[in-house]
Amino acid sequence: MAEAPKEARSRLNAFNLLRLLGALAVIVEHSWVLTGHGSPLTPASGIGVGGIGVGVFFLISGYLISTSWLSDPSLRRYTVRRALRIYPAYALVVIVTALLLGPLVSVLPAASYFSGTGAWSYIARGLLIQPVSYSLPGVFQGLPYPGAVNGSLWTIWVEVLCYIGVAVMGLLGLLRRRTVLVGLVLLGLAAASAVHLTGYSGPLIPLVVSAYAAQPVAFFALGMLIREVRWVPPLWLTALVVIAWRLLWGTPVANLAAIAAVTCLTFLIAFRAPAWLHRPTGSYDLSYGTYLLAFPAQQVLVQSGLREPVLVLLATVAIVLPLAALSWRLLEQPALRLRHRRPAPVPAAAPVPETS
């Protein structure tokens, strides 16, 4: 969900590949959950397939967003870059979902659908990002996962909070303080473990963010730390960590082992994958559009009677990837180009010719 800043935008990493795989992992999870089949990964593993996908997003985001600030520590430009990357596509999905998709799939007639406050509240809360609404009048009722229009939107607010955290740390000069970054990682891991072990689902910070944010925030902090220490996990260590994670399934530390395995795999692939894998969709970045659009598309498929997870997965990918390409081409990429515009410089006196 984050673009590579100038110094990290080379073709020497596989971040584009990983972000797309992360979005597809979320689709896999939702294809099982939304059809009533539960998560494809056993709870003993400490993380779901969708959690792995979200973790990959936040690891890369922590790495790139902190790099973005350090490469250009201007609060105004940083805010503009973040807003242009995340908001246009998000806002369009919220509006189109409420005004076009909602009345088409709702059990209510269009007049009833629009006469109440539900659709308008969905748009207003969605555009504010927090607190986002997940239901529309008469939409997706009676499904295995009833009433949820776009359950993926909860992570957008967590991402925004991480952006704010990077800006605050940048202004305070803390983004290169390794002790601070290690402390943040430990705090995030402790919170994620407490949530995992207790099953707590209430507010992590009252009126700000729920317990579901603990694990993504821990991944984001790990991404920032790995950027600072410039660490690339070796293959042998990654293999050992993945094996250890599997052996620790069902133990109290399964989630910590899962976080370690996902982190090692992410950055091993990012910096060790062959160059031909770096940009699987060429100049198109389909990950964000895929992530935003998949959940409602899956609910439509389930409502149409498709209940086999594999078929929902394949149909969703076939539908969403072309839509994500349109989102990138017509909205996301043009918005990103606005980042590079600068006001015209004030005319200055002619420079003094060099005399040497």
Rank of each mutant, 00 (worst) to 15 (best):
Y134I: 07
N150W: 01
L127C: 00
G142T: 11
G142C: 12
G165N: 12
G102H: 10
A167D: 13
G142E: 11
R176Y: 01
A148E: 13
Y145V: 07
S152R: 02
L127Q: 08
S115C: 00
G173D: 10
R125K: 15
Y145C: 01
A111L: 09
Q141S: 12
A111S: 13
Y145I: 04
L104T: 14
L101T: 08
T155M: 02
G170C: 08
M169S: 14
P131K: 07
Q130Y: 15
Y145S: 11
L99A: 09
S133A: 15
L143T: 14
L99P: 01
G126W: 04
P137Y: 05
P109Q: 02
Q141R: 11
G142Y: 12
G142W: 11
T155Q: 05
A148C: 10
S133L: 07
S133Q: 13
L127K: 09
G118T: 06
V105D: 03
G147Q: 04
R125D: 11
L99G: 04
G147C: 05
C162R: 02
L104Y: 09
L108M: 13
L136S: 02
M169K: 03
V132P: 08
V168Q: 10
S133P: 05
L127T: 00
P131Y: 03
I156W: 01
C162P: 01
V107F: 03
L127V: 03
Y163S: 12
I164A: 14
I123P: 08
L161A: 09
V158Y: 09
G151C: 06
N150Y: 03
V160G: 02
L174H: 13
Q130H: 14
A124Q: 11
L174N: 05
L136N: 03
M169F: 15
V160E: 13
C162S: 15
P144E: 06
L100C: 11
A111C: 04
G116V: 12
W154M: 06
P109G: 10
L127A: 01
P144C: 08
L104H: 11
I156C: 00
